[in-house]
Every structure is written in C-alpha cells, then in structure tokens.
Design a protein around this nucleic acid. Structure first.
Lengths: 144, 144
DNA sequence: TTTAAATGTAATTATTATGGTTACAAGTAA
DNA sequence: TTACTTGTAACCATAATAATTACATTTAAA
C-alpha cells in the first residue's frame, strides 16, 4: 500500500501556483495540469488553506502562496494533506493476547521502533522545500 | 493511511517462535497470541517462508526460524510481508498534463525525493533486528 | 491402513480509503 | 443582474485489508 497521491498533487499545485504567479491559478486551471477534477483540487486546496500554505477566497478566482517557497517544506505539505497520521505510518495489530509474554509486550516494544523509522522519513521531507522542487522544474525547462 | 499490520504481526510471529522454541509453534498457537484467525497466520507464514525466514512444512506441526535472531532485520520482515513495494511508499498521480511545464516534470522531480525519504525509513528498519525485539520483551518479562 | 492433526490455499465477506464525478449553495466582480 | 468561482456534500467504483470458512494435501501415529 502506498501513501495517497494527495501529497504529490499538493506539491504539484503549490509549485504550479508559484510558477504561474503572474496569472490566476483557478481550480480548473490547476486541474488541467494535474489532470483531475476541479473538485478534487478544491478539496486539497482546502487542506492547504487550513494549514496556512495558500490564500484562497470563495468567489475570488485564483490561489496564492501564503509563504515564501523556501519557507514551505515537503513535510509541511505532507502534514497539510493528512496522508499519514502522527505515529501511525505503521499500524500495529490490536488486542494481542495479554496472557502471552509476547502478546502482552509486543505493542510497547514495537511502537518506538516504528516511530523511529517514521521520524527518519519525515526528517527527510522536512529538509526539502518547494523551492527545491520549483528550481528543479525550472532547470529542466530552462526557464529563468 | 497506514502500512498493513501484516508487518507487526510478522514480527510478533517470529519473536514468539523464538521465545517458544522449546514447544511447537503451530498456526493455532500463534493465532492465539496474535489474536486472529489461524488462516491469517498461515498466509503470513507463507510469506516469511518464501523469504527464507522460517521453516514450515505441510502436515508437520510448528514453525522454526530459518536464521539466527540477530541475522533477521526488521527490514527483512518488512520486505517479506510485502507491505510496501520498492520505491512506492509514496504514490505519485499519473498522467499529469505534458503540455504544462509543471505537469511534464513533476514526476521525475518528485520521485527521487520520495525515494530518499523512503530509504531513510528503511535504513532504520535495517538497523534493527529481531534480537533487539526479543531482548526487549525478555527484559520486560524478567525472563532470562 | 486408518485416523487425527496440521499446513497450504482459495473463496467470500465487511470495512475502509481513495479518487473521481455531479450538483449546488454562497461569495465576488463586472 | 449575470457570469464565474470557491466550498461542500453526496454518491460511486475500485482496491486493499483482515477475518472467516472450507477443503485438499501432507505427515505421523495408532
């Protein structure tokens, strides 16, 4: 199983808003680039707005970044779109048998190990910003 | 979304086989500790067997570890039970618009970043062994 | 050789998350 | 007033999970 593509779509949206900053980035425009339905974009945009990453207003066409590109990490986006809950990248089976030494202790033994693994992954996401993403795209396009 | 509990169940099974090494660990016995159905245990056991982590035979009651506890990493178990495909911890939306500079490049830009994050997580799993798990359980139980 | 017990595996089910789609109320600007 | 946009809710198809039942196959012991 994989982590929802809401995350990659969120990155796509934010990068496109930045690159398209001289034009209005409506949900229809963004949907055309992502290749999905405008309603899907608006739902994700709502999450990005709640997280304080974008400014959008009902009735007003277009979204804008609420922060500088370099101030938005991939971890910020990841948290914003709610693809993985805190400490729950790995699920642990519940109700193991408390009368068995393994069943009684397996959860408390495993949990810190799983958290350590999840944290290592999230630390990488926290070290990357949207600026890195946009720069790479611009390099590939020879723009700017 | 979370990674399947097959992973934590796999760890549970292997740890219990090790701790119960003087008795036969049948799928029914293991299921009693995990608190699930014996058929679920047998399915996971089949994966662990394919990965060379346990020895089981049709008709013969009980499973045994195929390697030393210290020679089985959590990454081995993770791969064995097939909870995350290689390079696919994060899914990336497909068919972005190739006529848009962002749509054209987003996949190739994001993929290495996602792989880097996934690798960091897997590296942690690779640094932990079943011996660590069993020792912790034994410590908590004051056994040996 | 028969019997009992265990593994291997397929089929079925309920539950949940995802991603897409349609529809429409509400807000804004021309 | 009109046209356009955002925000949301409702609904659907699909896929993965985990549990359950059932049964063929294999082994060992009576």
């Amino acid at each position: 199983m994989s982590i929802s593509s809401r995350f990659s779509v969120g990155i796509h949206i934010l990068a496109l808003i930045a690159i398209n900053k001289n034009e209005r980035s409506t949900s229809e425009f963004l949907a055309g680039s992502v290749n999905t339905n405008p309603a899907v974009i608006r739902k994700i945009m709502g999450m990005l707005k709640t997280a304080g990453l974008v400014n959008v207003q009902p009735g007003i066409a277009g979204a804008e970044l609420a922060k500088d590109l370099s101030a938005i990490t991939l971890f910020d986006v990841y948290k914003a779109v709610n693809v993985v809950q805190e400490k729950e990248l790995f699920s642990i089976h519940d109700n193991p048998n408390p009368e068995c030494p393994v069943g009684k202790n397996i959860q408390s033994t495993i949990e810190p190990l799983f958290i350590k693994a999840q944290s290592a992954m999230e630390k990488v996401l926290n070290s990357l910003t949207l600026e890195d993403v946009v720069k790479d795209i611009n390099d590939k396009e020879n723009i700017c």
